[in-house]
Design a protein around this nucleic acid. Structure first.
Length: 246
DNA sequence: ATGGGCACCTGGCTGC
DNA sequence: TGCAGCCAGGTGCCCA
């Protein structure tokens, strides 16, 4: 393994290369947005942040700016990590990865049966916080960042300003379905590409074309034609249609 | 227990 | 043409 820049969101541990050297990859899994690569003596926990990507390249492929590390595989190819914003991270654990600090408090997988209307209704009961911020809390919901939060609420026809505890049981059902739908649809077509972000093949994600409200301030709502509104919640932009969403 | 705010980082864009 | 300044994203962490 070659590390060119240890400065990711957290610095890559100085012992990391020596630890993973010569180990066989047993399996690759995922929890929330963390990639789990199980080796013989432990697990690599990797996050792509917002601009990270992994590519499998030939050994002679020259590295480029922001190619922060390479792992040489037994096949002769190289697993290369590229991340302009350096919000990605790389950790090592020899214990059950589910018990790792970064993973142990995470909410259920949003596409699992465990994540449903009843679950969402229950966890929102004592939340005075706006529902948009509630569904962006990884202890309550995982997989929903700023883009999909606005999109899911639009699909569920719920105002992003509504207090979590004011969500009715029926709305919790709608919202849990909207979250599953938006994540499922986005995954299916390669995610959402904004500006310079590309996926592992260097291709953009095409979900941007399917966004109903995100980054569409002033533009007509795709359902009712009234202008999409924008405001700030938790230091982040929220987009919504005040006609469709209540 | 809950919520508010900040931090990390760089490319793209705006405006002088 | 160049450059300073702002904004965007995911999410952990510190403090009230």
């Amino acid at each position: 393994m070659i590390v060119r820049d240890r400065r990711l969101r957290w610095p890559i541990a100085p012992t990391f290369e020596a630890t993973v050297r010569h180990q066989v990859i047993r399996s690759v899994d995922r929890r929330a947005k963390y990639l789990l690569i199980r080796l013989e003596t432990g697990t690599v926990i990797l996050h792509l942040g917002m601009s990270g990507s992994l590519r499998l390249v030939d050994a002679e492929t020259p590295y480029q700016t922001h190619d922060h590390w390479d792992i040489a595989l037994g096949s002769g190819r190289i697993l290369r990590f590229h991340d302009p914003r350096r919000f990605g991270s790389l950790h090592w654990t020899e214990e059950d990865p589910a018990q790792h600090t970064l993973l142990k408090k995470l909410a259920p997988e949003p596409l699992s049966d465990e994540f449903n209307g009843e679950y969402l209704f229950t966890v929102t009961r004592k939340r005075a916080l706006a529902i948009k911020l509630v569904i962006m809390n990884s202890q309550l919901v995982v997989g929903v960042g700023n883009i999909y939060a606005s999109e899911a609420l639009f699909r569920a026809r719920i105002s992003p300003r509504r207090a979590g505890r004011r969500i009715t049981r029926a709305e919790a059902v709608k919202l849990s379905k909207a979250i599953k739908d938006v994540l499922g649809a986005a995954i299916k077509i390669g995610g959402t590409t904004l500006r310079d972000y590309v996926n592992a093949d260097g291709a953009p994600g095409y979900f941007r074309q399917k966004l109903f409200v995100y980054e569409r301030a002033q533009q007509p709502c795709r359902v009712c034609k009234s202008p999409v509104k924008q405001f700030t919640q938790g230091q982040r932009s929220t987009y919504w249609c005040s006609t469709c969403q209540r």
